[in-house]
Design a protein around this nucleic acid. Structure first.
Length: 282
DNA sequence: GCTTGCGCCTGAATGC
DNA sequence: TGCATTCAGGCGCAAG
Protein backbone atom coordinates (compact mmCIF):
# COMPACT_ATOMS: atom_id res chain seq x y z
CA UNK A 1 0.00 0.00 0.00
CA UNK A 2 1.25 3.50 -0.60
CA UNK A 3 3.08 4.89 2.39
CA UNK A 4 4.22 8.46 2.68
CA UNK A 5 7.40 8.02 0.58
CA UNK A 6 5.35 6.51 -2.26
CA UNK A 7 2.90 9.39 -2.06
CA UNK A 8 5.79 11.83 -2.27
CA UNK A 9 7.09 10.02 -5.36
CA UNK A 10 3.64 10.39 -6.92
CA UNK A 11 3.67 14.08 -6.09
CA UNK A 12 7.03 14.49 -7.81
CA UNK A 13 5.65 12.68 -10.84
CA UNK A 14 2.62 14.94 -10.92
CA UNK A 15 4.89 17.98 -10.78
CA UNK A 16 6.75 16.71 -13.84
CA UNK A 17 3.85 15.47 -15.97
CA UNK A 18 0.62 17.10 -14.86
CA UNK A 19 1.33 20.55 -13.48
CA UNK A 20 0.80 23.19 -16.14
CA UNK A 21 -1.68 21.08 -18.08
CA UNK A 22 -5.36 21.77 -18.60
CA UNK A 23 -8.02 19.17 -17.93
CA UNK A 24 -9.85 19.11 -21.27
CA UNK A 25 -12.12 16.24 -20.31
CA UNK A 26 -12.68 13.80 -17.47
CA UNK A 27 -14.70 10.68 -16.73
CA UNK A 28 -15.76 9.19 -13.40
CA UNK A 29 -15.88 5.46 -14.00
CA UNK A 30 -16.88 4.57 -10.45
CA UNK A 31 -18.85 7.04 -8.35
CA UNK A 32 -17.52 5.50 -5.12
CA UNK A 33 -14.16 7.08 -5.89
CA UNK A 34 -15.73 10.54 -5.59
CA UNK A 35 -17.99 9.72 -2.63
CA UNK A 36 -16.32 12.46 -0.59
CA UNK A 37 -17.35 14.98 -3.22
CA UNK A 38 -20.73 15.51 -1.64
CA UNK A 39 -22.25 17.38 -4.59
CA UNK A 40 -21.87 14.25 -6.69
CA UNK A 41 -19.88 13.07 -9.70
CA UNK A 42 -21.45 15.46 -12.21
CA UNK A 43 -20.51 18.43 -10.07
CA UNK A 44 -17.03 17.00 -9.62
CA UNK A 45 -16.59 16.91 -13.40
CA UNK A 46 -18.05 20.38 -13.82
CA UNK A 47 -15.55 21.73 -11.29
CA UNK A 48 -12.46 20.19 -12.88
CA UNK A 49 -13.05 20.24 -16.64
CA UNK A 50 -11.49 23.32 -18.20
CA UNK A 51 -9.25 24.02 -15.22
CA UNK A 52 -5.49 24.12 -15.34
CA UNK A 53 -3.41 22.32 -12.71
CA UNK A 54 -0.98 24.82 -11.21
CA UNK A 55 0.74 22.71 -8.57
CA UNK A 56 1.03 19.39 -6.74
CA UNK A 57 1.21 19.48 -2.97
CA UNK A 58 1.09 17.01 -0.12
CA UNK A 59 0.36 16.75 3.57
CA UNK A 60 0.84 13.32 5.08
CA UNK A 61 -0.69 10.89 2.63
CA UNK A 62 -3.02 13.47 1.15
CA UNK A 63 -2.19 15.04 -2.18
CA UNK A 64 -3.84 18.04 -3.73
CA UNK A 65 -3.68 19.67 -7.11
CA UNK A 66 -4.28 23.43 -6.88
CA UNK A 67 -6.22 24.66 -9.91
CA UNK A 68 -6.12 28.06 -11.63
CA UNK A 69 -9.65 28.57 -10.31
CA UNK A 70 -8.29 28.67 -6.74
CA UNK A 71 -9.96 25.34 -5.97
CA UNK A 72 -8.04 22.10 -5.54
CA UNK A 73 -8.50 18.46 -6.41
CA UNK A 74 -7.76 16.52 -3.22
CA UNK A 75 -6.50 12.97 -3.71
CA UNK A 76 -6.05 10.12 -1.28
CA UNK A 77 -4.61 6.86 -2.59
CA UNK A 78 -6.05 4.80 0.26
CA UNK A 79 -4.77 1.25 0.31
CA UNK A 80 -4.35 0.55 -3.37
CA UNK A 81 -4.54 3.81 -5.29
CA UNK A 82 -2.28 4.64 -8.22
CA UNK A 83 -1.91 7.69 -10.40
CA UNK A 84 -0.84 6.71 -13.89
CA UNK A 85 0.13 9.04 -16.70
CA UNK A 86 -0.53 7.13 -19.89
CA UNK A 87 -1.45 7.59 -23.52
CA UNK A 88 -5.19 7.13 -24.14
CA UNK A 89 -4.30 4.32 -26.54
CA UNK A 90 -2.96 2.23 -23.66
CA UNK A 91 -5.66 -0.24 -22.65
CA UNK A 92 -7.60 0.91 -19.61
CA UNK A 93 -6.23 -0.80 -16.51
CA UNK A 94 -8.49 -2.96 -14.41
CA UNK A 95 -9.96 -0.89 -11.57
CA UNK A 96 -9.71 2.38 -13.51
CA UNK A 97 -11.93 4.73 -11.47
CA UNK A 98 -11.34 8.25 -12.80
CA UNK A 99 -9.59 9.51 -15.92
CA UNK A 100 -8.53 13.01 -16.93
CA UNK A 101 -7.70 13.93 -20.52
CA UNK A 102 -4.87 16.46 -20.41
CA UNK A 103 -4.47 17.07 -24.15
CA UNK A 104 -1.52 16.19 -26.41
CA UNK A 105 -2.24 12.50 -25.98
CA UNK A 106 -1.74 12.46 -22.23
CA UNK A 107 -4.20 10.96 -19.78
CA UNK A 108 -4.03 10.97 -15.99
CA UNK A 109 -5.63 7.81 -14.63
CA UNK A 110 -6.69 7.09 -11.08
CA UNK A 111 -6.63 3.34 -10.53
CA UNK A 112 -7.77 1.92 -7.20
CA UNK A 113 -8.59 -1.70 -6.64
CA UNK A 114 -10.13 -1.44 -3.19
CA UNK A 115 -11.67 2.01 -3.35
CA UNK A 116 -10.37 3.11 0.04
CA UNK A 117 -8.96 6.11 -1.77
CA UNK A 118 -10.76 8.80 -3.72
CA UNK A 119 -10.93 12.40 -4.85
CA UNK A 120 -12.97 15.51 -4.21
CA UNK A 121 -12.80 19.16 -5.11
CA UNK A 122 -12.05 21.53 -2.26
CA UNK A 123 -13.44 25.03 -2.91
CA UNK A 124 -10.70 27.63 -2.51
CA UNK A 125 -8.47 24.81 -1.32
CA UNK A 126 -5.38 25.67 -3.34
CA UNK A 127 -3.27 26.72 -0.37
CA UNK A 128 -4.51 24.10 2.12
CA UNK A 129 -7.86 22.35 1.66
CA UNK A 130 -10.08 22.94 4.70
CA UNK A 131 -11.09 19.28 4.65
CA UNK A 132 -7.55 18.20 5.51
CA UNK A 133 -6.49 21.10 7.68
CA UNK A 134 -6.74 18.84 10.74
CA UNK A 135 -4.00 16.58 9.38
CA UNK A 136 -0.74 17.20 11.23
CA UNK A 137 2.53 17.80 9.45
CA UNK A 138 4.65 14.76 8.73
CA UNK A 139 8.20 14.22 10.00
CA UNK A 140 9.67 14.99 6.56
CA UNK A 141 8.02 18.41 6.60
CA UNK A 142 10.61 21.10 7.46
CA UNK A 143 7.95 22.80 9.59
CA UNK A 144 7.34 19.70 11.71
CA UNK A 145 7.67 20.88 15.31
CA UNK A 146 9.28 18.33 17.63
CA UNK A 147 8.67 20.34 20.79
CA UNK A 148 4.98 20.67 19.99
CA UNK A 149 4.73 16.99 19.08
CA UNK A 150 6.39 15.93 22.33
CA UNK A 151 4.12 18.05 24.49
CA UNK A 152 0.99 16.84 22.71
CA UNK A 153 2.09 13.22 23.01
CA UNK A 154 2.59 13.54 26.75
CA UNK A 155 -0.89 14.98 27.16
CA UNK A 156 -2.39 11.89 25.54
CA UNK A 157 -3.54 8.91 27.53
CA UNK A 158 -2.96 6.10 25.11
CA UNK A 159 -0.28 3.79 23.75
CA UNK A 160 2.61 5.14 21.67
CA UNK A 161 1.62 3.22 18.56
CA UNK A 162 -1.94 4.51 18.62
CA UNK A 163 -0.50 7.99 18.91
CA UNK A 164 1.82 7.42 15.96
CA UNK A 165 -1.16 6.35 13.86
CA UNK A 166 -3.19 9.42 14.89
CA UNK A 167 -3.15 11.80 11.92
CA UNK A 168 -3.87 14.81 14.10
CA UNK A 169 -0.59 14.30 16.03
CA UNK A 170 1.76 13.21 13.27
CA UNK A 171 0.86 12.26 9.72
CA UNK A 172 2.20 9.83 7.21
CA UNK A 173 2.96 7.01 9.63
CA UNK A 174 1.05 3.84 8.80
CA UNK A 175 1.11 0.44 10.43
CA UNK A 176 4.32 -0.61 8.68
CA UNK A 177 6.38 2.47 9.52
CA UNK A 178 4.96 2.62 13.03
CA UNK A 179 6.31 -0.86 13.71
CA UNK A 180 9.64 -0.07 12.05
CA UNK A 181 10.02 3.20 13.97
CA UNK A 182 9.23 1.53 17.29
CA UNK A 183 11.67 -1.29 16.59
CA UNK A 184 14.43 1.18 15.74
CA UNK A 185 13.77 3.24 18.83
CA UNK A 186 13.41 0.14 21.03
CA UNK A 187 9.98 1.06 22.31
CA UNK A 188 7.08 -1.32 22.88
CA UNK A 189 3.88 -0.32 21.06
CA UNK A 190 1.85 -0.29 24.29
CA UNK A 191 4.10 2.14 26.18
CA UNK A 192 1.81 4.76 27.76
CA UNK A 193 2.34 8.11 26.07
CA UNK A 194 2.02 10.15 29.27
CA UNK A 195 4.94 8.32 30.84
CA UNK A 196 7.34 8.57 27.90
CA UNK A 197 10.49 10.55 28.47
CA UNK A 198 11.34 13.34 26.07
CA UNK A 199 14.43 11.48 24.88
CA UNK A 200 12.25 8.49 23.97
CA UNK A 201 9.79 10.62 22.03
CA UNK A 202 12.66 12.21 20.13
CA UNK A 203 14.07 8.77 19.43
CA UNK A 204 10.90 7.51 17.78
CA UNK A 205 10.51 10.69 15.71
CA UNK A 206 14.09 10.39 14.47
CA UNK A 207 13.48 6.73 13.65
CA UNK A 208 10.32 7.55 11.70
CA UNK A 209 12.13 10.28 9.82
CA UNK A 210 15.02 7.96 8.97
CA UNK A 211 12.80 5.10 7.79
CA UNK A 212 10.85 7.38 5.51
CA UNK A 213 13.90 9.18 4.21
CA UNK A 214 15.55 5.89 3.30
CA UNK A 215 12.43 4.64 1.52
CA UNK A 216 12.09 7.92 -0.34
CA UNK A 217 15.72 7.75 -1.45
CA UNK A 218 15.07 4.32 -2.93
CA UNK A 219 11.74 5.25 -4.48
CA UNK A 220 13.04 8.32 -6.18
CA UNK A 221 15.37 6.30 -8.32
CA UNK A 222 12.80 3.99 -9.88
CA UNK A 223 10.76 6.69 -11.51
CA UNK A 224 9.80 6.23 -15.14
CA UNK A 225 9.08 8.97 -17.66
CA UNK A 226 5.58 8.11 -18.86
CA UNK A 227 4.54 6.12 -15.87
CA UNK A 228 3.77 7.73 -12.57
CA UNK A 229 3.53 4.60 -10.54
CA UNK A 230 3.19 4.23 -6.87
CA UNK A 231 2.09 0.78 -6.11
CA UNK A 232 4.06 -0.40 -3.10
CA UNK A 233 3.01 -3.98 -3.79
CA UNK A 234 4.70 -3.94 -7.18
CA UNK A 235 8.04 -3.63 -5.48
CA UNK A 236 8.63 -0.03 -6.43
CA UNK A 237 10.55 0.15 -3.16
CA UNK A 238 12.92 -2.47 -1.99
CA UNK A 239 12.02 -1.98 1.61
CA UNK A 240 14.29 -3.58 4.11
CA UNK A 241 11.97 -4.21 6.99
CA UNK A 242 13.32 -5.16 10.39
CA UNK A 243 10.08 -5.82 12.25
CA UNK A 244 6.93 -5.55 10.15
CA UNK A 245 5.87 -8.92 8.76
CA UNK A 246 8.93 -10.62 10.26
CA UNK A 247 7.09 -12.91 12.69
CA UNK A 248 9.22 -15.91 13.61
CA UNK A 249 12.37 -14.47 12.04
CA UNK A 250 15.34 -13.48 14.19
CA UNK A 251 15.68 -9.86 15.22
CA UNK A 252 18.72 -8.57 13.32
CA UNK A 253 19.87 -6.80 16.49
CA UNK A 254 19.67 -9.56 19.09
CA UNK A 255 18.53 -12.75 17.37
CA UNK A 256 15.32 -13.17 19.37
CA UNK A 257 12.38 -14.20 17.22
CA UNK A 258 10.11 -11.33 16.20
CA UNK A 259 6.59 -11.77 17.55
CA UNK A 260 3.20 -10.69 16.29
CA UNK A 261 0.50 -9.34 18.57
CA UNK A 262 -3.10 -8.47 17.71
CA UNK A 263 -3.51 -4.72 17.71
CA UNK A 264 -6.57 -2.69 16.74
CA UNK A 265 -7.89 -5.56 14.60
CA UNK A 266 -4.52 -5.74 12.85
CA UNK A 267 -1.03 -6.77 13.90
CA UNK A 268 1.96 -5.36 15.67
CA UNK A 269 5.39 -6.82 15.12
CA UNK A 270 8.08 -6.36 17.71
CA UNK A 271 11.17 -7.86 19.29
CA UNK A 272 10.31 -9.18 22.79
CA UNK A 273 13.82 -8.39 24.06
CA UNK A 274 14.64 -5.07 22.38
CA UNK A 275 11.11 -3.77 22.98
CA UNK A 276 10.10 -5.00 26.42
CA UNK A 277 6.42 -4.86 27.25
CA UNK A 278 5.63 -2.19 29.87
CA UNK A 279 4.24 -3.18 33.28
CA UNK A 280 1.12 -1.13 32.68
CA UNK A 281 0.48 -1.25 28.95
CA UNK A 282 -2.10 0.86 27.12
C1' DG B 1 -13.08 16.96 24.78
C1' DC B 2 -10.81 12.81 24.43
C1' DT B 3 -10.44 7.93 23.32
C1' DT B 4 -11.97 3.76 21.15
C1' DG B 5 -14.07 0.83 17.76
C1' DC B 6 -16.60 0.10 13.47
C1' DG B 7 -17.30 0.03 8.53
C1' DC B 8 -15.87 0.87 4.14
C1' DC B 9 -13.71 -2.48 -0.02
C1' DT B 10 -11.39 -6.27 -2.91
C1' DG B 11 -8.78 -10.26 -3.70
C1' DA B 12 -5.28 -13.37 -1.99
C1' DA B 13 -4.68 -16.78 1.31
C1' DT B 14 -6.44 -20.02 4.33
C1' DG B 15 -9.89 -23.37 6.34
C1' DC B 16 -13.28 -26.96 6.12
C1' DT C 1 -12.63 -29.01 -5.91
C1' DG C 2 -15.30 -25.43 -4.21
C1' DC C 3 -17.33 -22.53 -1.19
C1' DA C 4 -16.88 -19.70 3.05
C1' DT C 5 -14.08 -17.13 6.11
C1' DT C 6 -10.08 -14.32 7.38
C1' DC C 7 -6.87 -10.82 6.68
C1' DA C 8 -4.80 -6.51 5.12
C1' DG C 9 -5.01 -1.30 5.78
C1' DG C 10 -6.21 4.53 6.37
C1' DC C 11 -9.56 7.31 7.62
C1' DG C 12 -14.11 9.41 8.94
C1' DC C 13 -17.49 9.02 11.99
C1' DA C 14 -20.28 7.50 15.89
C1' DA C 15 -20.37 5.83 20.41
C1' DG C 16 -18.63 5.62 25.01
Amino acid sequence: MPELPEVEVVRLGLVDYVVGRTIVDAVVHDIRSVRRHLAGPHDFLAQVIGSTVVGARRRGKYLWLPLDSGDAIVVHLGMSGQMLVQAPSVAAPKHLRISFALGDGVELRFVDQRIFGGMFVSPAGAELPAEIAHIARDPLDPAFDRDDFASRIKRRKTGIKRALLDQTLISGVGNIYADESLWRSKLHFARPTEKLRRVEIDRVVVAATDVMTEALAQGGTSFDALYVNVNGQSGCFDRSLDAYGQEGLPCVRCGTLIRRDPFMNRSSYSCPVCQPRPRHPR
